[in-house]
């Protein structure tokens, strides 16, 4: 009986604190997340955002390579690496040819107007979203685009903290971004869980011959960074609508070599 009363009393106090949490939520919601922003702007000592993924995995000591056997193994590895590099050279030549073919796309990105801040994902939160280094300290803003080494858009900045930011990547279910093709058709690219759904919101010219969907200044984005390539995807042209679906599994990028694109305001 005594235990039962004690438990009920505990429940009541728990419920009071749950209501207290809800009141904090209401306050934060109606102040446009001003409270949480103030905390996250001022606190930068509780999160190790300068840590990179490779740092976690540095178990190997360089001393290990001192022994004769290891040197022989290293020699074999280097030999394989040379062979691999030869293969890569051939691949590189092929890519150069492809690059020339896409000259129109490359020329349309005016690299002088932007600068790129290298960042890296260092933690994944419970909502499966990645946090990357750099935040208010590096002047990140909401909806800043994130590109990979090839210049393709892989996500955008969602929430900014003092020294880190939350990113919504292409493979997140919350991903949604407008884009433009070379014919001036406007698109919305959305993640529906298993596929990246690409469909027109405004049509200028009905065609299936679409290669890339770009970012565009009309959507307040830095101009002409490719978001998705539809060259190998099946494009459907219906009555006044162009659409396509890309499997999420086909999209792969490194979370360690990504860049935030910022507009260069200096003359």
């Amino acid at each position: 009986m005594k235990d039962g009363n004690l438990r009920v009393r505990n429940y009541i106090i728990f419920v009071i604190f749950i209501l207290f949490s809800f009141s904090i939520m209401v306050l934060d919601f109606f102040s446009n997340q001003e409270i949480s922003s103030t905390i996250s702007k001022r606190m930068n000592f509780l999160i190790p955002s300068s840590v990179n993924f490779p740092d976690y995995l540095e178990f190997f000591d360089t001393e290990l390579f001192q022994t004769r056997n290891n040197l022989i193994n290293e020699n074999i590895r280097l030999k394989n690496e040379v062979l691999e590099l030869r293969k890569l050279k051939i691949e590189n030549d092929l890519l150069k040819e492809e690059l020339d073919a896409n000259k129109n796309l490359i020329e349309s990105v005016d690299s002088t107007n932007y600068f790129y801040i290298k960042t890296t994902a260092f933690i994944k939160n419970n909502e499966n979203k990645y946090l990357v280094s750099g935040g208010y300290d590096k002047n990140f803003e909401k909806n800043d685009i994130v590109i990979n080494e090839e210049g393709f858009v892989v996500g955008f900045v969602d929430k900014i903290f003092q020294n880190h930011s939350e990113i919504i990547f292409l493979d997140d279910v919350d991903f949604s971004m407008p884009g433009l093709d070379r014919f001036g058709n406007e698109y919305l690219i959305q993640n529906n869980g298993s596929q990246l759904s690409v469909y027109t919101t405004s049509v200028n010219e009905l065609t299936a011959n679409i290669d890339f969907i770009f970012t565009a200044s009309i959507f307040d984005q830095p101009g002409r960074f490719p978001i998705v390539s539809l060259s190998d995807a099946k494009v459907t042209v219906d009555d006044n609508k162009i659409s396509s679906n890309i499997d999420i599994e086909e999209i792969s990028f490194s979370f360690t070599d990504i860049y935030i694109v910022k507009t260069n305001d200096l003359p």
Binding site: F14, I18, I24, L27, D28, S40, M43, L46, F161
Partner: peptide
């Protein structure tokens, strides 16, 4: 509060309420 303020875009207090 620590989680909401530093690791997520949740409204402050959401995770506390959820944990309790």
């Amino acid at each position: 509060i620590y989680y909401d303020a530093l690791y997520s875009s949740n409204i402050l207090g959401f995770s506390s309420a959820k944990f309790l």
